[in-house]
Computed example of a mutant assay.
Amino acid sequence: MSILLLDVDGTLIDSFPGIRAGFLHTLDTLGWERPPEEFIARIPGPPMEVTLRSLGMSEEQAQEGLGIYLDYTAGGGWADATAFPGMLDLVRRWKGQGHTVATATSKGESFAEKILAREGFLEHIDFLGAAQEDGPRRSKSAVIDHVLASTGWDTATSDILMVGDRSHDIEGAAEHGIDTVAVTWGYGTPEEWATARATAHSPEELEGIVHDCFARGRLARG
């Protein structure tokens, strides 16, 4: 069984405009100083409360900020996003080739479902793995654990490959013995991608890498 776990923000969907706007709205509402654009460019991917804590917020402040951010996103911020060119066609082809496709995203579950449905991905996804908007399932590792527990997929008997753009994708997958292919059209850096099994610079290159990985087999087991 060949299973693809797909990150959403920065891999399937360019959600940076909405995430950026929600982040800045959160900081302005809290009266917190805005960081440099270099910092803002890296906010998509990790849970928002992790990003807020990295600015020096206390746990209480970060949780208050998360609530503000989620309210903004629910109010329409989720829609300020578009599919990366070529990725919908690639997901369709993967399904046609017999691969099982799931998401493993730190994006809130309802927001992920809405944007993936609007952009045409949802009908090609076998399991929607996402973070809880109000619950403990927030990290990438926790989301992957949820996917595996919910589906019964076993890394000891199935070939599983993660596709993502940030270090937390790679590290979260590695906690479960799963390799990652990093994509460069998202929000990561060369230093982050260097820790992945392979790096793809286009959907076409990603398709070839995934084909080769599954052709070799035993991804999650060796």
Rank of each mutant, 00 (worst) to 15 (best):
G77W: 14
T157P: 03
S58C: 06
C213K: 08
K114F: 04
R53P: 00
G186E: 00
L148N: 13
E59P: 00
E119D: 09
S158W: 12
T51I: 08
P203C: 12
A131Y: 05
E60R: 08
E109I: 13
G10Q: 05
D28W: 05
G76D: 15
D14Y: 10
L52G: 02
E119L: 11
D212M: 02
G129P: 12
A117F: 08
L12S: 04
T26I: 10
A130C: 08
W78H: 09
E175G: 07
A102C: 15
H25S: 11
G86E: 06
A102R: 13
A104I: 02
I170M: 13
T51E: 14
F39D: 13
A215M: 10
L55V: 06
G188R: 04
R138P: 09
G77C: 15
A81M: 10
E205K: 07
D212I: 01
L122Q: 03
Y187R: 10
A62Y: 10
E192F: 03
L116E: 09
R221P: 02
E204H: 02
L88G: 14
T151G: 13
R93M: 13
E191L: 11
S54M: 04
T73Y: 14
G208W: 01
A81I: 08
A117P: 03
E192K: 04
G18A: 00
Q97C: 11
E64R: 05
S139E: 15
R218S: 11
V143Y: 10
E192C: 05
W32K: 14
H99C: 12
R197F: 15
F84M: 01
D179S: 08
S15M: 01
G152Y: 05
R221Y: 02
L128Q: 08
A220V: 02
E123N: 04
P136S: 05
T180F: 03
K140E: 15
M48N: 06
A149L: 04
T26V: 11
E171V: 11
Q63I: 12
A220M: 04
E64I: 00
I115D: 02
W94P: 13
V181C: 04
W94M: 15
E175T: 14
E204S: 04
G96R: 10
E133D: 14
L90D: 12
D14F: 10
G222L: 09
D165S: 01
L5N: 01
G222V: 04
T105H: 12
E64N: 01
E33I: 07
I160C: 05
T103W: 12
P44G: 10
L161C: 06
